[in-house]
């Protein structure tokens, strides 16, 4: 499948994300924040980094970039979209996902190999995993604390829209240990940790992240 990876000014992990896409058996297509063009891709990844310098709020300015107009419209029609870290923040600012990401409760940047439990293995991006499977992938954020009001959290839990949860350590104060969520349709997923950094034995914490990049293909041929 052809998976677009968006580069914003200040994006950091687009190269790693594109590499993970290729290792996952897909074609990576570079998308530019300033273009009203998704180049006909089958899915889009919004990678991590500090788009627009995190000015105003993380993701707040990126959300209004030309490419995001297209992403938001296409996501509404079912296009699979995965937002990682800063990409998750952009998806929340775009209101494609509920809640918001604010500064870590302990106020420090955190960088660690993080254990997660996959809570929903039915989304476009997680079908390669087993429900309840535990994985370890790198986590690195300063503003990764997922928050939403109680009603929204209850709804997310009730509808099975918590995609991944932190296990052992809650690294940033996220409510109910939430590391990732999905929209109602399951095509849009936001995740704070970085599966794209865990796709090869040579580097990172292992290859536990690969499933996020093979799920689309597996689903297509299932």
């Amino acid at each position: 499948m052809r998976i677009g990876v968006v580069t914003f000014p200040g994006t950091l992990d687009d190269i790693d994300a594109a590499r993970a896409v290729r290792i996952g058996g897909n074609e990576a297509v570079s998308l530019w924040h300033g273009d009203h063009d998704l180049k006909g891709v089958d899915a889009v990844i919004l990678p991590g980094g500090f788009s627009y310098g995190d000015y105003l709020r993380c993701g707040a300015i990126s959300r209004f970039s030309p490419v995001m107009t297209e992403v938001i419209e296409a996501a509404g029609k079912g296009l699979p979209v995965l937002g990682i870290c800063n990409g998750f923040q952009i998806l929340c600012e775009s209101h494609l996902l509920p809640g918001a990401l604010i500064r870590n409760d302990h106020r420090k940047f955190v960088c660690r190999d993080q254990r997660l439990r996959i809570e929903n293995a039915d989304t476009a991006w997680t079908s390669a995993f087993e429900q309840g499977q535990e994985i370890v992938v790198p986590l690195k954020n300063g503003e990764g604390q997922f928050i939403a009001d109680e009603e929204t959290l209850d709804r997310l839990e009730g509808e099975g829209r918590v995609v991944a949860r932190y296990v052992e350590v809650n690294p940033n104060g996220s409510l109910r240990d939430i590391a990732g969520v999905t929209n109602q349709a399951g095509n849009v997923v936001g995740l704070m940790p970085h599966p794209e950094h865990a796709v090869e034995e040579l580097t990172g914490s292992g290859t536990d992240g690969l499933g996020f990049f093979t799920s689309l293909v597996e689903k297509a041929f299932a």
């Binding site: 500064r103 870590n104 106020r107 604390q145 928050i147 009001d149």
Partner: peptide
């Protein structure tokens, strides 16, 4: 301003 019920780590610092 951050909503009253939202933790404000910067204010705390």
């Amino acid at each position: 301003m951050p909503k009253p019920e939202i933790l404000d780590p910067q204010g705390k610092a």
